[in-house]
């Protein structure tokens, strides 16, 4: 795949703590103006002998599934010395108001739009998260943060106690703060009873569908969010397995695999994707590469892909798109 460095992206991207020796706390970008929906850019890193994709994911502010799906031909446990690993650090912003916290469950990613201080430019901060597994789905809807707890005590609900007991692994009624506490060092209680945004004592599980419905973050991520967010901040829990958005004259599509509880549908329906694309092109004209849609949905690698040709510059721009080979057989249609 060819790396595309969009000048607009470069101008908008303000990556604060990328690729230091310590894990990335957050990917922070200047909030683009309304009408521009894509932030960041795809990047690469070369694996060291001792690396796993889980290590690289954490160091890069990514979740496990994100990095595995972006690197389907690489062994997650033994990538190998010098192997080039794609970092899918480009995102179409979810279709939701750009305020407070937006959690996109299918994407397993949280977006935080902090209120800018006087004279500051607005920013968006994004973190990988874990969400609820099968039968423990993370709830959707509008909620808010009702309290913040440092070094939280975990009191597992009866349902979780019963599940662990049935598995022969009974839990205590109260888990005090410490290394065995699955909430980690910080927790944000939501107004939906029993649901939290919290840290973890198993950071390797971030970016997977493994929780009882809570939103789990890397320890360094929850600490940064905990310190930044206030009680009362709105939290929108949405499920958008595909996202459509503009960057300049280009329309991007980002598709994520369906979560396990939705897997009985096997494949993401193309109809809502087509509707979303048509909706986007009502406000701005574009020639859509419809012929690529099926393969993008099939791949569902979570990386934004250009699905339009620039109306102002024409087909010559194809050479600068990510999938030039695919573009050779395009069927160009006007919506």
């Amino acid at each position: 795949m060819k790396l595309v460095l969009q000048p607009v992206v470069a101008a908008l991207s303000v990556s604060l703590l990328m690729f230091s020796s310590t894990p990335v706390f957050a990917q922070t970008y200047a909030l683009p103006p309304e009408g521009t929906d894509v932030i960041g850019s795809v990047d690469y890193v070369y694996a060291k002998h001792e690396d796993t994709l889980a290590d690289i994911a954490r160091d890069s502010g990514l979740g496990y599934e994100e990095i595995v799906r972006s690197n389907p031909d690489i062994d997650p446990w033994l990538p190998g010395e010098g192997v080039k690993v794609v970092l899918p650090t480009q995102y179409v912003l979810p279709q939701a108001p750009r305020e407070g916290i937006v959690v996109n469950v299918s994407e397993m990613r949280l977006y935080y739009y902090p209120k800018p201080a006087q004279g500051e430019l607005p920013q968006v901060v994004t973190y990988p998260i874990s969400v609820g597994r099968v039968d423990w789905a993370t709830p959707l809807g509008l909620t808010k943060i009702v309290s913040k707890r440092k070094d939280p005590t975990w009191r597992p609900p009866d349902s979780i106690l019963a599940e662990h007991a049935a598995d022969g692994n009974p839990l205590p009624r109260v888990v005090p703060p410490g290394p065995d506490n699955p909430l980690g060092k910080f927790a944000l209680n939501l107004s939906i009873p029993g649901y939290l945004i919290h840290g973890t004592n198993k950071p390797a599980g971030v970016g997977m569908q493994v929780t009882h419905g809570c939103i789990r973050m890397y320890p360094e991520s929850i600490e940064a969010l905990f310190l930044s967010v206030d009680v009362g901040v709105k939290v929108r829990l949405v499920d958008q397995p595909y996202k459509v958005g503009w960057l300049g004259d280009a329309l991007y599509l980002e598709v994520h695999a369906a979560l396990s509880q939705n897997a009985d549908t096997k494949k993401l329906s193309k109809t809502p994707v087509v509707k979303a694309i048509i909706g986007a092109t009502k406000v701005r004209e574009a020639s859509i590469e419809w012929a690529r849609l099926a393969s993008i949905i099939e791949r569902a690698d979570g990386m934004p892909v250009t699905i339009s040709l620039s109306s102002s510059e024409g087909p010559a721009d194809i050479e600068e798109t990510q999938d030039f080979e695919d573009a050779q057989e395009l069927v160009l249609l006007k919506p």
Binding site: P76, I160, K202, G205, M208, V210, T211
Partner: peptide
Amino acid sequence: RLDRMFKKSMQK
């Protein structure tokens, strides 16, 4: 198997 074990181990 490894993947499933890993995911299982990451559950609470």
